[in-house]
């Protein structure tokens, strides 16, 4: 079980959440419909092997969206916060 630290509810098993996906994708509000930014936003992914910023919806809890930094190779959770929060890599991870 992945344990995600929901800012409201506290640490919860991931079965309470719905995975939304890559949290680095910023909706290009206002960009023309022809702007390639839209394609990038909807379809392209960095898909890193390692730390990954992602969104989880606490659908069986407070129904808030939680931003999580998680290592996709080890499943280690390195930080969590609200969607607008900046979540930095722990120092130990940066050095790895």
């Amino acid at each position: 079980m992945l344990y995600i630290d929901c800012p409201y509810c506290g640490s919860r098993g991931h079965e309470e959440f719905t995975y939304i996906g890559d949290a680095t994708k910023k909706r290009p509000d206002g960009a023309e419909t022809s702007d390639p930014a839209w394609f990038d936003y909807v379809y392209l992914r960095d898909n890193p092997r390692g730390p990954h910023l992602e969104l989880w919806h606490h659908s069986l809890g407070c129904r808030e969206v939680v931003k999580v930094l998680r290592n996709t190779l080890t499943h280690e959770i390195l930080g969590a916060g609200r969607p607008g929060d900046k979540i930095a890599l722990p120092d130990a991870e940066t050095e790895r």
Partner: peptide, 8 residues
């Protein structure tokens, strides 16, 4: 799927 990005 387990539903989250993973290389593990």
């Amino acid at each position: 799927l387990d539903m989250y990005n993973s290389y593990a």
